[in-house]
Nucleic acid binder design. Structure first.
Lengths: 247, 247
DNA sequence: GCATTTTTTGACTAAGCGCCAATAATTGAC
DNA sequence: GTCAATTATTGGCGCTTAGTCAAAAAATGC
């Protein structure tokens, strides 16, 4: 029995080795560029062995996405515990989104890869659920801040919106802007020189529009975001080092 | 010479025939599922002939995206001429985004297909520029509304934002929410039951946060969006019929 | 040391992209 | 109307890749 677990451990070690090899290929050359032969030859194993770990290419990509989304979730968890009014914690989550895209760009790109029907069609329910769970956890972290703000009477949610639907607006604006920034050819050519600053202003405006206390002008908001960003940076290294070990 | 143009016309007719055949395949089965052999056999031409029209698969996809984005742009143009204060026109563009995603879902999906580095790597500069141009025109339409609102003193833009960067916020929130709605597995499972309504509320809040006159409560905003949506629907049919003929 | 189970291997099939030499069709000069 | 020159079409070929599977190798356990 102790032998069996040693074998299992060996198996798992190799599973993560496959992911370690596959990730940079996926990031550099996309889903097309990632080939099983290439992974196999770089691992110095036969292709069939790779198929003992993952039934198809899509599962590898989904497994990579699970890792990347776990990092995002951990970053969210760390951001949600900054001190101050709920609005500050909400801002910290905006900072986390910025930070993730800018400093974990590879993981951000992996997340993009799975927004593709064909990957979901060919992968296992089980691994899909890991993604959904992680997404749900991220949502839960932010929604908890909203609920806390309501409890503290610093915010009242517009009628007809659930706390999660309120979060959805911030999710959409951050996610949308980051996708556009990274995939739209030549934003500056159509007059968008500093998309990141623009989204900060919009988030601030949205928070103020919701009358989420304390109200701030964009300049003040921006100052606070800078501080939150630095705080996040200092927290980040310890987070990276335990990347796959903590919940 | 008249013979030559007849030939050219024949050539162009077949080019659009290829796109007509390729589009439903791309939509139903994605970039992977679209194969040159399949297009050729469905056209009852040899594969080589398809390659006389398009140097590779990526160019076909980009050509399809040009058509879809032209439809979006035309919808934007039609929406931008509704009567009333600039804020109403801005709202009409939000309605156009909703409308496009809901009633031209195929075109929305085609737009998504090209957010993929490998397609841009393998396609011609020339066709890429058609996409960029269309994107720039869409931006121009909306930015003009913003500029008009400033001129009418119904809006003052936050310092540090260009009119285009202001538009970018609305672009991001609409685009982001639509991508999430269409590609995120089970939004309702994480508490988002009506993403479309949520985004309407957020857009209203954002407009109010910018103090864009006339200020509206979400309920009133929603009523106006409904009316704009109906108006758009009535305009849409004539637009569809002349889809590729007008600028 | 040997039989049984498990794992690994890499040749193989099927499918698809892109190429190109051979074939067919069209053109236009006379 | 004929025929040489040009242009367009064809489909088979080389190459790559996903995924399979029977045979070989390795590990296990008695």
């Amino acid at each position: 029995m102790v032998e069996l677990t040693r074998k299992q451990r060996e198996m798992e070690r190799r599973t993560s080795e496959i992911l370690r090899v596959a990730r940079p290929i996926l990031i550099a050359e996309g889903f097309q560029g990632l080939s099983m032969d290439r992974v196999a030859s770089q691992m110095e194993y036969a292709k069939g062995t790779i198929y003992n770990h993952f039934p198809n290419k899509e599962e590898i990509v989904l497994a990579l996405a699970v890792e990347s989304m776990a990092l995002r979730r951990n970053l969210f968890k760390q951001s949600a515990i900054v001190i101050g009014p709920a609005r500050f914690r909400m801002m910290a989550l905006g900072a986390a989104c910025e930070f993730f895209t800018q400093h974990c760009t590879d993981d951000f790109l992996v997340e993009q890869c799975i927004r593709n029907q064909s990957i979901w069609d060919k992968s296992s329910e089980q691994r899909q659920n890991l993604i959904r769970q992680c997404e749900g956890e991220c949502m839960g972290i932010v929604a908890a801040i909203v609920r806390d703000a309501v409890a503290r009477q610093e915010l009242s949610i517009p009628v007809s919106l659930t706390p999660e639907e309120l979060v959805f607006g911030f999710w959409a604006i951050n996610y949308g802007s980051q996708i556009l920034t990274y995939s739209s050819p030549s934003l500056p050519a159509i007059g968008i020189n500093d998309p990141c600053n623009a989204i900060r202003v919009h988030c601030c405006t949205l928070l103020n529009g919701l009358a989420w206390q304390p109200i701030m002008m964009p300049a003040e908001y921006n100052e606070n975001m800078k501080k939150l960003n630095e705080l996040l940076q200092s927290k980040f290294w310890s987070l990276k080092s335990q990347q796959h070990s903590f919940n």
